[in-house]
Each structure stands twice: as C-alpha cells, then as structure tokens.
Design a protein around this nucleic acid. Structure first.
Lengths: 213, 213
DNA sequence: GATTAATAACTGACCAGTCAGTTATCAGGA
DNA sequence: TCCTGATAACTGACTGGTCAGTTATTAATC
C-alpha cells in the first residue's frame, strides 16, 4: 500500500449539510428539480452520491432544506422591512424593488422560481413548501402595507391583494423572461429600469388624489 | 381464426396527426415536457406509441406541431385585433384582457406556459419556438399600439416595451398562480377582476394629462 | 481497535426511440 | 359478388441509456 500523505477524504460531519445545500441550490436552479442529478450535486459539494443520504432522506427532503436554509432567511429581511415601514407607502414602494434586485443578484432566485413553476404539477410538495414558507409571507406583508396605506387615505379603494400582485408582477415576469427567453436570443429587460418605470406608473395610478405629490 | 366484426384498429392517415396533436397538448400541459410520456399521448389519441413516429420524428417535433397547429392560430386573432385598432388606446386596453381571458378558458394555455418556463433550460428549442412563434408577435403588437398612442400624445413618455410588459404581467402571474399554488391550497385570484383593476390603475398612470378622461 | 463518515459498485424502475411482424384496406380479376 | 395479392398503416415487444436510492466495504478519527 502506498503511504502517501493526502487522505482520500475528510470526515466533516458538521460542514457537509451546508455545503450540500449550497451545491443543491445551484444545480436545482440550473437544471430544475427532476433534471437535477444527485450525482452532480454530490460532486459539486465534494462528496459521493451515497454521502447525500447520510444527511437527507430523499431528493424532495433536500429541496426543502434548500428553501428553509438558503432562501427563506434572505427573504425574511424584505418582509421585515415592509412590516416595519411606517409610511408613506410611496417611499416604501420605491425601496422594495431595489432590495429585491439586490437579492436577485445574490441568489439564483430566478432559476428556482422557474423550477417551482415548471414542476409544481409533478411535485406538488415543492409548490407547497415554496408557497407556505416564502410567497405567502412576502405577498401578505405587501398586502398589509397597501391596506394600511388605504386606511391612512393614501391609496385609492381596491382589493389590496390585487394591488400587491400588480406591483410585483412585472418584476417577476422580467426575471422569468431573463431565465426563459434571453438564452435563446430575446432582448433582455433592464430590470431596475423596468422596476422604476412601473413603480412610478403604479403610484400615479394607485395614490388617492389627496396623497399624490 | 375468429371472424368477429370489430377490427383491432382502423387506418385513418388523415385524421391521426390532428388527434395526436390534441392529445399531446393535453398531456404536455398536465405533465410538462420531460414528464409527458409518449405512451400516454398515444393512448389518449387512440393509437400505439409506434404510430406517433409515423407522423412525428421526435418528441420535440411533436411539441413544435402543438404550438404551430393548436396554439398559434388562436393567438393570431388577438394580435390582429391589436394591430388593427385605430385608437384611443384606452378602449383597446379594456378589450384585450377580456379576449385573453376567453382564450385561457378555451385552451390549457396556463399549463403550457408553465411547461415552457420550467423546461426552457433543459430544452431551449421549446423556448425558441414559443418565443418566436407567439410571444414576440404578441408583445410586439402591444408595444406598437403603445408607441402609436404615444405618437398621438395619448400616453406619457416611457419605454413602450416596458409599458407592454407592465400591462400583461399581472394577468400572466395570475395564471401562473392558478397553475402553481392553487392546487396546493392557495387562494385563487379572480382573473377578470384582477385584469379590470389593473387596466384602470395603469390607464390612470400611463395616460398623459391631456388624454385622461 | 472501536466507531462511524464516506465511498463506489450495484439494483430496479422508467422511458424515448426502433423494428419485425400484423392486419385493414382496396385494386383488379374471376 | 367473391376472391386475391399488394400496399402501407399500425402494433407491441424490445433496446440502450439514465438515474434515485441501497448496501457492502473501506478508511479517517479519537
């Protein structure tokens, strides 16, 4: 036997789960859930496929860990910002897209969004986790902010949940566009510019006449 | 040999392609591209799997046929309506969502949209076909209508392509929401109501002060 | 040298695409 | 009207490859 110094692997029980989750986030975002190969996640995390099963029971379980550990904490910051903002809502709405644009650069959120949408039918559990842990909270916070602004007389009457969707939809579509059509040659959107134009249009449309400035 | 009446199959060369395309549309919308099994498409079309290959070379080729024969002709109607509309744009924008809502009831468009988004990464050809044959035309027509309205002084300055996305994004997100989160228990959106509130908000935000009524 | 993290070869299920063979259909001849 | 090839639409079993999850074994660490 050769007695070379470098060992073939290290035992690093504490560090593995985090490294695996990080690798899984990248591969899920790139390939989607069904097409993501556990072998590839393992290689990127620097372990063998079998090692994944020491820390996660199934592929779906691994996805759940990705959402809870790699994504939810980041979005929580945005939610807290919205919940804490006292008003006027115009200031808040000019801040939120900026904050979201930053997140989109940090995390491969676009890829994961694409994945959740595309595979919700075949893996309802993915959609449930994504909705319950992230989307419901974020949309709820924005909805509350709009309703509070309506109570203060800043925003015109109208369904606040609908206003919330109206506000974030173009940014979401911009991200989906970037992930879906830009790789096959479509003209990309300048997301910050899109967000800015949309917020101004929406503010003009939403704010009650008294509150407009 | 038994000489029973019912034959095991019929030779119906002319009718097969249409029936196969229809079955494929349904299965692709339900399962997505990768998860759609050709065996299931064949059974729903009333043929064997081998018969598919008499009419279509590959799975992707079959998808292309679905887009061109089952979807494109329907969307062409909307595009023509937008291209032909003389103005004012407010009237057009109040008509379009209604027309699109009708399409969404007729065809399983939501399912196909979901599929294209989710599988664009693994099958760029799907995204290319969908973009080139449908999305580019529809968005272009809306964009042209906005630009024309700007030239007439009806709409404020701003990137017309961005206005186009702002206009359709909430409806698109509403459809995606229905396909993705409603099946796992989320509250659905009333799409026509969403469209109505959004058009009114956008008109207030987009129309130049002179053109508002 | 006992413990257990980690490996790597393996299994079983699934599915796009193929192909050798089967059978409906229809001319043309009796 | 009934046969009788000839044609090609159609079938279904098969192939080759992929991949989630399992397990027998190895080796790092205390």
């Amino acid at each position: 036997m050769l007695a070379t110094g470098a060992p073939k692997f290290r035992r690093r029980k504490a560090a593995r789960p985090g490294e695996i989750v990080e690798a899984a986030l990248a591969v899920f975002a790139e390939k989607g859930f069904a097409a993501a190969r556990l072998e590839e996640i393992a290689v990127r995390a620097g372990v063998s496929k079998g090692a994944l099963y020491l820390y996660f029971e199934t592929k779906e379980d691994l996805f759940r860990a990705v959402v809870e550990q790699a994504i939810a904490p980041n979005l929580e910051g945005v939610r807290a910002m919205m919940a804490a903002h006292p008003g006027p809502i115009a200031d808040l709405l000019r801040l939120v897209p900026e904050r979201i644009a930053l997140l989109l650069e940090t995390l491969p959120l676009g890829g994961v969004v694409k994945m959740v949408i595309g595979e919700a039918g075949n893996f309802p559990e993915l959609a449930r986790v994504w909705h319950d842990r992230l989307v419901a909270h974020a949309l709820g916070a924005l909805c509350d902010a709009v309703a509070a602004a309506q109570a203060r007389g800043e925003v015109k009457p109208g369904d606040p949940r609908t206003f919330a969707v109206q506000l974030i939809a173009p940014l979401l579509v911009g991200v989906i566009w970037r992930e879906t059509f830009v790789p096959v040659g479509a003209e990309p959107f300048d997301l910050p510019a899109l967000a800015r134009q949309h917020v101004e249009t929406m503010l003009t449309g939403m704010l009650s006449d008294g509150a407009r400035r």
